[in-house]
Design a protein around this nucleic acid. Structure first.
Lengths: 255, 255
DNA sequence: ACGCGCGGCGTACGGCGTACGCCCGCGTTG
DNA sequence: CAACGCGGGCGTACGCCGTACGCCGCGCGT
C-alpha cells in the first residue's frame, strides 16, 4: 500500500493527465476508456463507500473492464487520486465576487466545507506533492479574488487563504470523524460517549483532572446535542476572520 | 488494510490497553513482551521510517519475536497506533502555567508543533474514534489551564483549544509534506517547483489566471527561501490569537 | 495485403493485516 | 512430587492490495 502517496517521479506525465493533454485516440472512438470515465467512476466509488473501498480492481469492475486496463490511462493509484481531487475542485461554484472581504471569505469557507461534506474522501487523500491541476489553479485564482485589493501583500494573501482553508479542513475532518464513527459503530456520537463513560470513569476520577472533567462534560453535552462539529467550525471561522480583520484594518489605516 | 482505522468494537479492551490495566504477568517475569515494549519499538520505527514502514511484521522483528506474538498484547494495528499516539502525548512538557493567556496559548502551540516535528507520523495516524488515553486526558487538562479563568465559557474554552491545535496540525502537516517531498524526490522544494514550472507554464499562461500567477510566484519565492511553512504557521497563529483576543476582551469588558 | 502499434487484460508476485490452532513450559493443585 | 491446564509464543495460511510483465487481436497507414 502506502497507496495514495508517491506519484511517479515523471512530472510531465502527471501534469499531462491532470490537464488532459491528449486527443481522444482517433481509432475505436467507441465507448472506450478515458481518464475522465475512470475518474468519474472512481469518485463515485469513493463518495459512496470511502477511500478504503477505492481499489483499482473496483474501478475496473465499475467500468466493465479488466483491472490492468486502467493502468493504460493512469500510471498508478496515487495519480488517480490526484486527478480525483482536482476534478472535485472543478465542481465548486465560483460566484462573482461580492460583499466585503469578510463576507467573501466566509462564503469561500462554507463552499469548501460543503465540498468536503460531499466528498469526505478528500480529507483522507494524502498527496505529498501538490496537485497542480487546472481546477485547483482556477480555484486558487478565484479565492484569491476575495482578498485581493484590500491592502495585503501577496504573501499575506496566500497566508490568509491557507489559514482559512486549513481551518475548514480541520473542522471538516472532525465532523467527518463523527460521521464515520456513527456509521462504523451504529451508535450516535452521544451513545458512544455514554457507553465509554463508565469505563473512563473507572480510570479517571473527576478530581484527578478537574478541568478536563468539567470542560469535557460541557463539550460532551454539545456533542450530545449533535452540533458539536458545527459549533467548532462556526466559532473557529469567526475567530479566524476576526484575526484577519486586525491585519486588514491595520493595513488600511497605516498604508 | 484500511489499516489505522476501525479499532475493535470492544471499548473495555481498548481502554484497558491504553490505561495499562493489567499487572505484568507474575510468571516468566523475564524479558517477555509487553504493551510498553511493543509501543516503544513501534514508535521507533515510525519515527525513523514513517507510518508506511510500520508493519506488524517489522514490529515483531524489531523485538526478536514472531509477528503474531504482538497480537497477544494488542488486538490489532489500529489499537497499536492509538497507544502510540497516546504515548507520544505523554512525552510533552507540561510546564507550570505562566504569563498571560496569549503567551500560554502560544507556548502550547509551539510545544504541539515540536511534537509533530518529532513524530510526523502522528499527522497521518487516522483515528476515527477519539484516543481517550491517560496522556491525552492529561494533556487536555493541562492545556485547558491556559484558557481557564479568563472569562470564557467551558464550551468556548474547548473551542479555543480545538482551534489552536487545529491550526498547529494544519501547519505541521504542510511542513511535513515539504519534508516528505524532499526525501522522496531528492530535490528541495525550490528545485521541485523549478522543475515543474516549465510544464505548468505550458498549460497555464499568466494571463489566464493573473492573480494566481502573481501571488503564486510571490508565495513560491517564500518557499524557495525555505521558510514557507514556518511563515504560514507564525502568521496563522498570530491571526488565530488575535481572533481569540477579540472574544476575551469582549467577555472581560461585559461580564 | 500486410504488418505493426496500441488498447485491453490474464497471470503472477511480493507484501499487507490477521484468523486459527499447535506447542511447550510454567505455576498450581492433588 | 507428579499431573495438569492455561496462557504466552508463533508457523502457516488466507484473502486482500498495488502493479510488473508479456501476450493477444484489432484497425489503421502504407
Amino acid at each position: 500500500m502506502a497507496s495514495e502517496r508517491k506519484a511517479t517521479a515523471d512530472p510531465a506525465r502527471s501534469l499531462a493527465i491532470l490537464w488532459r493533454t491528449r486527443e481522444p485516440t482517433s481509432r475505436s472512438a467507441g465507448p472506450g476508456l478515458s481518464v475522465d470515465r475512470i475518474v468519474r467512476a472512481a469518485i463515485e466509488i469513493a463518495d459512496a463507500e470511502g477511500l478504503d473501498a477505492l481499489t483499482m480492481r473496483r474501478v475496473g469492475e465499475a467500468l466493465g473492464v479488466g483491472t490492468m486496463s486502467v493502468y493504460t490511462y493512469v500510471p498508478g493509484k496515487a495519480e488517480l487520486v490526484n486527478v480525483m481531487v482536482d476534478t472535485a475542485y472543478g465542481e465548486m461554484p465560483r460566484p462573482a465576487v461580492e460583499g466585503d472581504w469578510r463576507a467573501r471569505l466566509e462564503r469561500i469557507a462554507r463552499d469548501n466545507l460543503a465540498l468536503y461534506q460531499r466528498h469526505p474522501w478528500m480529507l483522507r487523500a494524502e498527496t505529498t506533492r501538490p496537485v497542480l491541476g487546472p481546477h485547483l489553479v482556477a480555484k486558487y485564482d478565484h479565492e484569491l479574488g476575495a482578498v485581493d485589493g484590500i491592502g495585503l501583500t501577496d504573501v499575506e494573501m496566500d497566508a490568509v487563504l491557507t489559514l482559512v482553508l486549513g481551518h475548514v479542513k480541520s473542522a471538516a475532518r472532525a465532523a467527518s470523524e463523527v460521521v464515520d464513527l456513527e456509521r462504523e459503530t451504529g451508535m450516535t456520537d452521544g451513545q458512544w460517549w455514554q457507553s465509554h463513560a463508565p469505563w473512563l470513569a473507572t480510570f479517571m476520577t473527576a478530581d484527578s483532572y478537574p478541568t478536563a472533567s468539567r470542560v469535557g462534560t460541557a463539550a460532551g453535552q454539545q456533542h450530545g446535542a449533535a452540533y458539536g462539529p458545527e459549533y467548532a467550525f462556526e466559532f473557529g471561522l469567526q475567530r479566524v476572520l476576526d484575526g484577519i480583520s486586525v491585519v486588514v484594518v491595520e493595513r488600511a489605516s497605516s498604508g
